[in-house]
């Protein structure tokens, strides 16, 4: 995440007394450890691993050594990659950086945040959480002692590929014994959002079998390709069908199979059987003006490392209906 500072609309040339710091709150990660036997240990008994090779110190034996993963959690190390379908979460901290003996006082600190997206949507104002701490609502200002921090958290569902800009505006009033003034600054954080899953679909009509009713059936197949750099596990694929249609899931949920794990570049093929519900043919089904039957949308949910969630849905899927 690259960033730029804007000292917008602030005629004062002095450095600001308040700083803003951000950290993307992707999921915290389980810390890995490589337990080794201590050097100089006796050869005839199994020694406990060298304490320095364990991820943390525990008196209650909570460490699953010699296993690689340990239950202690690390805060995110870097920004990482942002993917469509994920929720972007970020913490914003406004800090009073004045020394404890400063004559100035910092009052009414406020943080605002907006996200600029690549599409036509332009800029969206972001809600700031948590709801109510420091005895103030997120909208209201907070007074900060020297060394004090106002922390806010924003969340944003990433829906588009491309350049995103998180704009953070901090305003505060700086008061001395005799005077006071309001100051504002703005910082921009830019990042690229990438595609996580490529979905390719195909619809084919099933020939009505001799003994079945006259309800028409289609097979909807979709290939889900993991085009991110992370391993993901597919959680669910669901079809949100239009009225008058029903569907049968032919995938892992239907037969209690394991949820598929997709490595980068791997593809999972899913399949649904879509069928007419209504008795009166064509009666309940709406066709588009160019003679297409809309099935509905396909939604795909997945989880990544340490439970990182992703969800995306396709556009409306459908098939051209041959005139009967």
């Amino acid at each position: 995440m690259s960033h730029q500072a804007y000292a917008s609309h602030d005629p004062v040339k002095e450095p600001h007394s308040v700083s803003v710091k951000v950290l993307r709150l992707s999921q915290p990660s389980l810390v890995t450890q490589y337990p080794v036997d201590p050097p100089f240990s006796p050869p005839t008994t199994k020694s406990q691993p060298a304490p320095a090779s364990l991820a943390y110190k525990s008196a209650s034996n909570t460490n699953p050594d010699p296993f690689l993963l340990s239950p202690i959690l690390n805060l995110p190390v870097s920004f990482g990659s942002a993917y469509v379908g994920e929720t972007f979460s970020c913490t914003l901290c406004a800090n009073n950086d004045l020394p404890p003996d400063a004559a100035k006082r910092i009052r009414d600190v406020r943080i605002e945040a907006e996200m600029k997206t690549p599409g036509l949507g332009g800029t969206q104002k972001l809600e700031l959480g948590p709801a109510n701490i420091h005895g103030a609502t997120p909208a209201g200002g907070v007074d900060l002692e020297p060394g004090g921090t106002l922390q806010r958290i924003v969340g944003f569902d990433l829906k588009e590929e491309g350049n995103h800009v998180l704009a953070v505006t901090v305003s505060y009033s700086e008061a001395t014994e005799t005077s006071g003034r309001t100051r504002t600054f703005r910082k921009l954080y830019q990042f690229i959002c990438k595609a996580s899953l490529i979905v390719r679909t195909k619809v084919s009509a099933l020939e009505p079998s001799a003994n079945s009713s006259s309800y028409r059936k289609w097979v909807l197949e979709a290939q889900l390709e993991n085009c991110s750099e992370d391993v993901i596990q597919l959680e669910k694929v669901v079809l949100d069908v239009e009225e008058g249609l029903g569907y049968q899931d032919c995938n892992w949920l239907s037969d209690g199979d394991k949820k598929p794990v997709l490595h980068p570049g791997e593809i999972e093929q899913v399949c649904f059987l879509v069928q007419e519900k209504g008795a009166d043919a064509d009666g309940g089904l709406r066709l588009t003006t160019d003679g297409r039957l809309i099935f509905g949308v396909l939604g795909i949910g997945w989880r990544g490392e340490m439970g990182c969630r992703g969800f995306l849905s396709t556009g409306k899927l459908g098939a051209r209906i041959a005139a009967r």
């Binding site: 110190k57 525990s58 209650s60 239950p71 202690i72 701490i133 922390q151 806010r152 958290i153």
Partner: peptide, 25 residues
């Protein structure tokens, strides 16, 4: 968790929770 038992993991993970809850101090 029993605070008497020294376990670094429990303390660290508690702190991580607080940071994700907006209670960094």
């Amino acid at each position: 968790f029993d605070i008497m038992a020294v376990d670094e993991m429990v303390g660290v993970n508690q702190a991580v929770c607080l940071i994700y809850l907006g209670r960094i101090q």
